[in-house]
């Protein structure tokens, strides 16, 4: 029925490293992205300001945000279910191209339980790290289409 195994995302071939920079030191999303990158045969280098070269894809992660929205309440009016919204914002720049701002959300449902506050905070940590891995996959999956769509850097701007 026409299905074939997925080939690695079609990144322009001269790009094989992704430089990850983040607004906050040691951003957990940067570590999740770094872990998932080698799944796609891309090696990552977390870069400090000096070593930014224009050979690789530069991703600059803005501070992440985790928000919650009430979904349902118990008869007492206390929260029963929340929607967890993990907001990812980053700038991606391909060699010779303008930097592009990207934002998306990963959403998961989460049930609260006032009698198990400590246990629920561990569940929240577990879900947050799973949402970060999912966000890393989405970021990588979108790299190929973003590479094509990014506007060319005006010639004067030398990276």
């Amino acid at each position: 029925c026409g299905f074939h195994l997925r080939s690695s995302p079609s990144l322009p071939d001269d790009i094989n490293t992704v430089a990850i920079e983040s607004a906050r030191a040691h951003a957990p999303l940067a570590r999740a992205l770094d872990k998932r990158l080698n799944v796609y045969g891309l090696s990552s280098v977390s870069v400090d300001k000096t070593s930014r070269s224009n050979q690789n894809v530069n991703i600059y992660l803005l501070p992440e945000k985790l928000e919650r929205q009430l979904l349902s309440v118990y008869p007492s009016g206390q929260v029963a279910e929340y929607e967890l919204i993990y907001v990812v914002r980053y700038r991606v720049q391909f060699p010779g191209k303008e930097a592009v701002m990207v934002q998306f959300e990963v959403v998961r449902d989460y049930q609260d339980d006032p009698d198990q506050v400590l246990a629920k905070s561990r569940e929240l940590e577990l879900m947050l790290s799973e949402m970060r891995d999912e966000a890393a996959d989405i970021m990588i999956r979108r790299l190929s289409s973003q590479a094509a769509a990014a506007p060319n850097a005006s010639t004067s701007v030398s990276q």
Partner: peptide
Amino acid sequence: GFYDSTPLLTDVEGLFRGQEFTG
């Protein structure tokens, strides 16, 4: 005792976690 463990919500994402309880 139960200190930081409670059953985990098993939605689609949770099925492959291999973990039934928090903590």
